[in-house]
């Protein structure tokens, strides 16, 4: 339904599906393959109905063989196709990690520039569903570590609608992280929303007092926190990194030059994560702009426990963001 502002209400899931449909319609070389993407309708119903619309050649169910079908996706890309490979969840991506790291990310370099690998690998990820230690991984940092990969994180509805389309323009492998906990979430996007830029970070809310820098499931949490801070007289800026590799440091620096404070929020374990990289970049480049030490709120250093209260406690929550911002601004002393 289009309203007077020319926006539509849409779930994150539906936005992802519209992007997939566009991609399949626009280019015959594009096909989707993954476990249960067809007959089952997608483990999370993202591809529901696409098999009926595009048929088995374009929507391929594959056996439980992550090394095999991700590798096959890389091979199909070498052979002239443009595959979108769905790894059901990031938790199973390690079974395909050898293919991703040792083939997709390196073939261009090893071949002295003769080969490139235009494959897209989508995976759902994230926390918050009490899925315990093997099914709750936030492994964006693992992938962001690898030269040769482009790593995108879909933190908003607009990006759910448009990031894939931009990724398809890449000549090199793109990893796209989608967030299971956001699938049912409704959001508003322009009725004519489509392709979005996927090279830069974006300021999701402007502010002058502090930069909350985050991505993925952290974006809406940070925006909620920022809203709560307004009545306290704190004007926080929220930066959505979106592209975890290569990092858009310019957007980060511009924001921190304005606010002089940076709080980094990430669900992944704190040690050696994306926030650690962002923090180092700030320190190396714009240290003298800072009025306070950079702070991080990240996942606790523990495999994810099953009970709700322990899962909640192991992740940065909106309340944690609010109180950390207050602390950083020494708000409690005023």
């Amino acid at each position: 339904m289009i309203d007077e502002n020319n926006t539509i209400k849409i779930t994150y899931r539906e936005a992802l599906k519209l992007a997939l449909r566009d991609a399949l319609q626009k280019d015959e070389k594009v096909f989707l393959m993954g476990e249960d993407v067809g007959r089952y309708g997608g483990a999370f119903a993202v591809s529901k109905g696409l098999l009926q619309e595009f048929g088995h050649e374009r929507i391929m169910d594959v056996p439980l063989s992550e090394t095999g079908f991700v590798g096959a996706g890389i091979g199909a890309a070498l052979g002239g196709m443009h595959p979108i490979v769905e790894v059901m969840t990031v938790n199973f991506s390690l079974l395909a990690m050898d293919q991703i790291v040792n083939n997709a990310a390196t073939l261009l370099h090893m071949s002295g520039g003769q080969l490139n690998v235009p494959v897209i690998i989508r995976m759902s990820c994230g926390t918050g569903k009490q899925l315990a230690a093997q099914h709750s991984h936030s492994w964006e940092p693992l992938f962001a570590h690898i030269p040769g990969l482009k790593v995108l994180s879909v933190g908003t509805h607009e990006d759910a609608r448009g990031m894939l389309l931009m990724a398809l323009q890449s000549a090199d492998p793109v990893i796209i992280f989608e967030y299971t906990a956001m699938l049912n979430m409704e959001g508003e996007i322009p009725a004519n929303a489509g392709i979005v830029n996927s090279t830069n970070a974006t300021v999701r809310k402007e502010g002058k007092d502090i930069s909350i820098i985050t991505y993925g499931a952290g974006v809406y949490k940070a925006l909620d926190a920022a809203k709560e801070l307004i009545p306290l007289g704190i004007d926080a800026e929220v930066v959505d990194l979106r592209v975890l590799r290569p990092l858009d440091t310019e957007t980060i620096f511009t924001s921190v030059r304005k606010t002089h404070r940076a709080l980094l929020v990430e669900e992944a374990w704190g040690s050696v994560n994306v926030a650690a990289e962002v923090s180092a970049c700030i320190m190396e480049n714009i240290f003298y702009e800072l009025d306070a030490p950079v702070q991080r709120l990240c996942g606790a250093e523990v495999p994810m426990p099953y009970p709700k209260h322990l899962e909640d406690a192991s992740l940065p929550q909106k309340e944690d963001i609010v109180s950390m911002v207050k602390r950083m601004l020494q708000h409690d002393r005023v």
């Binding site: 439980l64 079974l95 899925l131 315990a132 230690a133 093997q134 099914h135 426990p305 099953y306 009970p307």
Partner: peptide, 25 residues
């Protein structure tokens, strides 16, 4: 001890070593 949930039942006394939720893991 509540850490595993339905998918991760362990009982070493019974020599029951899980409860593994990565297929074939």
């Amino acid at each position: 001890r509540g850490r595993g949930g339905s998918m991760h039942l362990f009982d070493v006394e019974k020599r029951f070593y899980g409860g593994n939720a990565i297929v074939a893991g």
